[in-house]
Amino acid sequence: MKQWPLVLLGFVVIAAWPLLTSDVFLQRLGALVLLSAISASAWNLLGGYAGQVSVGHSVYFGAGAYASLVCFTHFGWPPIAGAPVGMLVSMLIAAVVGTPTFRLRGHYFSMATIAAAELARILAANVPLLGAAVGLMGPPVPRSAWDLSFISPIPYHYLFLAVLTLLLALTWQMQRSKMGFYLAAIRGGDRAARSLGVPVLRYKLYALLLSAAFTSLAGSLYAVMIGFVDPDSGLGILISVKMVIVAALGGAGTLFGPLVGAIILIPLEETTNAMFGGSGTGVTFIIYGAIIVLIARFRPGGVADLWHSLITRGRRGAARGA
């Protein structure tokens, strides 16, 4: 990769971000960008690399968020201790949901994932153990450092950065390995992939298991930071849609696409929310809709694709000048 210096520069800027400003809004924004980048990067493993567009990843996000707060509410564990539980539950759900739905193609697969996610949301809203429609709360005051309950967003920023770095390193490794090639082949076409000996269903399932585990971790981290989850904030369809849009905006199936998408979209969303207050949530939907239309119309490959063509154009220009 020739872009390593740029990647390093980006990492340094992101790592230094909360120290560059004393504005808590901006510090919090940094942490939220990273959290969104984690969930979108996790979605990207299946939706981007394998080309299986799930619009039901809120199930895994919600499983993570709920696992953390269920473990706190019912067993008194620190919420973060629920993260591995959530990841296991998510992988179990993934295996159960994935096995039948992977036989569906294209839009039919996406619709089946929506159905599964909505089912989970309705279920959660009616189970008292999960707080039903009211939801669950985290520790109101930190009992120990393990509760990871801080007033400043800065500790969250570094926690999220560590998780994102780990996830992207894993993705990079995966992308270069046999699995990365097989997922790309599956995205290119099931039939051709199978003719070359790719066990398509098995590899889709591997991608989903990995994707579900990390999406769940993002959900747990969200619950740890926000300290609250209810059916809408943990399992709402908007959570799934956001993962898709963030990844597609930056470039689905590319390593840094989801991070770039989060850097663009989250500040936009938070600013409109701050500007319009409670009545501004509708504006977020309008922005999402506009972004979907723009990506579909002009750049199906997202910002990564735009960047790539700018670079090639730049190189060609340079070659012409020389």
């Binding site: 090639f181 790309a184 082949a185 290119g188 076409g189 199978r194 003719s195 070359l196 000996g197």
Partner: peptide, 26 residues
């Protein structure tokens, strides 16, 4: 089909289905 490939039978398609986003080598 994947079992056929493993057993040593390879094929091409009437209408070629190459993996468009990947390079020729990939």
């Amino acid at each position: 089909p994947e079992a056929h490939a493993r057993a040593g039978m390879a094929r091409t398609f009437q209408v070629p289905v190459t993996f468009e986003d990947m390079s020729v080598a990939e």
